[in-house]
């Protein structure tokens, strides 16, 4: 089992590199890491440059503006790119039938799902950390060292949301065997989660708030304990989705 897991996750990493998925993710997230502080810093200058005659009083940008940009970029464009790049994670195998050879060699079906999920998670973590590190470095460069309260909780939240998205893509791909099924499942789930957040009482537990909603923590506003329920629900949801994917895959005709 462990050897199969190693062999298959090695294949997954090799695949991300061979299909350029790895490089694109790293490059895009590195770019976001740079763009976030840049946009924060340059917005007043840009507005000044477009001289419309109106005098717009812009407050001097702060480190918090840089982090706001960071969460906005990662939560929107970043997640979209992650989802598109990993939309074929299961369906490419099914539509081509590439798993047949491996499964008939005694490859365990749970190992397939786990290895894929873990490999994708590590790539996503690496991309996210690069983005975070770059943004952090530039923010310090421009605004000096900044006290960040509850850093771990704040920054772990968007990563966890990405994990949920990856698990959703895998479940959708396993059920429908095609890219559109993956994307639809993911999209539908995000719509549902956002709909739930309209209910005030539920929003505390809603993983949808993980994508960018913990920003308040950095500013020092809000209690970390407020976000912990959503984190726990998010982690349980991601794990549950992976288990569900394994169960669906075990019953699937290949």
């Amino acid at each position: 089992m462990i050897r199969q897991f190693q062999a298959l996750s090695k294949k997954e990493f090799y695949e991300s590199a061979a299909t350029f998925r790895l490089y694109i993710l790293l490059a895009v997230f590195l770019l976001f890491g740079m763009l976030s502080p840049l946009i924060a810093k340059a917005t007043p200058d840009l507005l000044a440059a477009i001289d419309t005659g109106m005098v717009i009083e812009m407050p001097e940008p702060t480190a918090l503006d840089s982090w706001t940009q960071f969460f906005k970029n990662v939560a929107q464009m970043g997640m979209i790119i992650l989802v598109i790049l990993y939309s074929g994670i299961m369906s490419n195998e099914f539509s081509k039938g590439t798993l047949v050879n491996l499964l008939t060699k005694g490859l365990s079906r749970s190992v397939v799902i786990l290895a894929k999920f873990v490999a994708a998670s590590i790539v996503w973590l690496a991309s996210y950390l690069i983005c975070l590190g770059t943004c952090w470095a530039y923010t310090i460069y421009f605004w000096g060292s900044v006290e960040i309260s509850n850093a771990f909780l704040t920054f772990a939240a968007p990563w966890l949301f990405g994990e949920i998205l990856i698990a959703l893509l895998m479940l959708g791909g396993t059920i429908f065997s095609n890219v559109y099924g993956s994307l639809f499942t993911c999209f539908a789930a995000v719509v549902v989660l956002n709909a739930i957040s309209l209910i005030p009482k539920a929003s505390r537990y809603n993983p949808a708030s993980l994508a960018g909603g913990t920003l308040a923590l950095i500013a020092g506003a809000g209690e970390p304990s407020q976000f912990i329920p959503a984190m726990v629900v998010g982690a349980v949801l991601a794990a549950g989705l992976v288990v569900a994917t394994i169960e669906v895959f075990k019953r699937k005709r290949v």
């Binding site: 047949v100 050879n101 008939t104 060699k105 005694g106």
Partner: peptide, 15 residues
């Protein structure tokens, strides 16, 4: 997949 270690399989169109 227990018996699969004893059996080799060539699908009609191997991918």
């Amino acid at each position: 997949s227990k018996t699969n270690r004893l059996i080799g399989y060539l699908p009609d169109v191997p991918e």
